[in-house]
């Protein structure tokens, strides 16, 4: 595994206007892999990304991006591509104009590649930005990022509002991008189905804190879903129920795998999906106990 991580956040605190904040956020992605940042809306995903990209100042902590400190020299942005759920170009610009406008800022801009990507993505250089569909707008931002030879792609909620075909295309584009071992991808999402397959690493964020981070398989192994009757799973000793959902028919919750052995044999214990983990962590109103899960050497 290469020595320099694609990025690393360590002990990041960030106060945001109306009291919301990131508290002691820390996680990192080794170069060459995909990480999904999972959390409910308002969990702090976008703030985390904005801090990582130096678009927002932090109050304390340390951020490293492609081996350099953030905030730092803007030349770092030569290597980073940003894809949001909306474009940040003038709506009236034609796609050819987008290139003419952005090109002077990038040292390694590749005009031939831009035109080739537009063609590949089925985008007309004469189309205007404002007339692009959600999926096309996403592809435009990706085309820009790939044309200036970004090494890290950061997506904020790329799949929200995308139809299944466009989401599948995105997975293909990310796969192509990662053929180069020096390329890495971070994306935030609340639709975990996208991550269930292609994500190498996962960071779960809730209420401005990192609940868990690590290789996806380790995260999946670390939790179990338990289901029991209405009277079961009460007065547990040594087992913490995360985000328990009770109904007259029964109860469902998340537990840590190492505690699952302590449960009554009658309850159903199953391996969770990322979605189930995300839901129960989202449901836990109190912040889940931040116990350090023994992390294997990353991948």
């Amino acid at each position: 595994m290469p020595e320099t991580p694609a990025f690393a956040l360590r002990g990041v605190n960030c106060a945001v206007g109306n009291g919301f904040a990131l508290r002691d956020v820390g996680f990192e992605l080794p170069t060459g892999y995909v990480m999904g940042l999972i959390g409910a809306n308002g969990a702090g995903k976008t703030t985390t990304i904005r801090c990582l990209l130096g678009m927002r100042g932090i109050d304390s902590g340390e951020i490293e991006l492609l081996g350099r400190r953030v905030p730092g020299s803007v030349s770092l942005r030569q290597d980073v591509g940003v894809v949001l759920d909306h474009t940040y170009f003038v709506g009236e610009w034609r796609l050819a104009e987008v290139e003419r406008t952005l090109r002077p800022f990038y040292d390694r801009w590749d005009g031939a590649r831009y035109r080739q990507l537009l063609d590949e993505f089925g985008l007309d250089p004469k189309a205007r930005v404002k007339n692009l569909s959600r999926g096309m707008a996403m592809k435009l931002m990706i085309a820009v990022a790939l044309s200036h030879r970004a090494r890290l792609l950061v997506f904020d909620e790329p799949t929200s509002g995308l139809d299944p075909v466009a989401r599948a295309e995105l997975v293909g584009i990310i796969g192509d991008f990662l053929l180069d071992e020096g390329h890495s991808v971070l994306f935030s999402t609340h639709i975990t189905a996208d991550l269930d397959r292609i994500g190498d690493f996962v960071t779960l964020i809730h209420d401005g804190r990192v609940v868990d981070t690590g290789p996806k398989d380790e995260i999946l192994d670390a939790y179990r879903v338990v289901r029991g009757g209405p009277d079961e799973l009460t007065d547990l000793i040594g087992v913490e129920l995360i985000g328990a959902r009770r109904s007259p028919a029964g109860v469902e919750a998340l537990v840590r795998t190492d505690e699952a052995g302590l449960l009554d044999g009658r309850v159903l214990v199953e391996a969770p999906t990322l979605e189930e983990i995300a839901i129960h962590i989202g449901l836990s109103s109190a912040r889940p106990a931040l116990r350090t899960r023994t992390r294997g050497a990353a991948a």
Partner: peptide, 16 residues
């Protein structure tokens, strides 16, 4: 195929 090409073609993670 390389690890990365196979991951892309099968649409699964590189770690896998």
């Amino acid at each position: 195929p390389s690890v990365r090409a196979l991951a892309r073609d099968l649409r699964i993670s590189i770690i896998t």
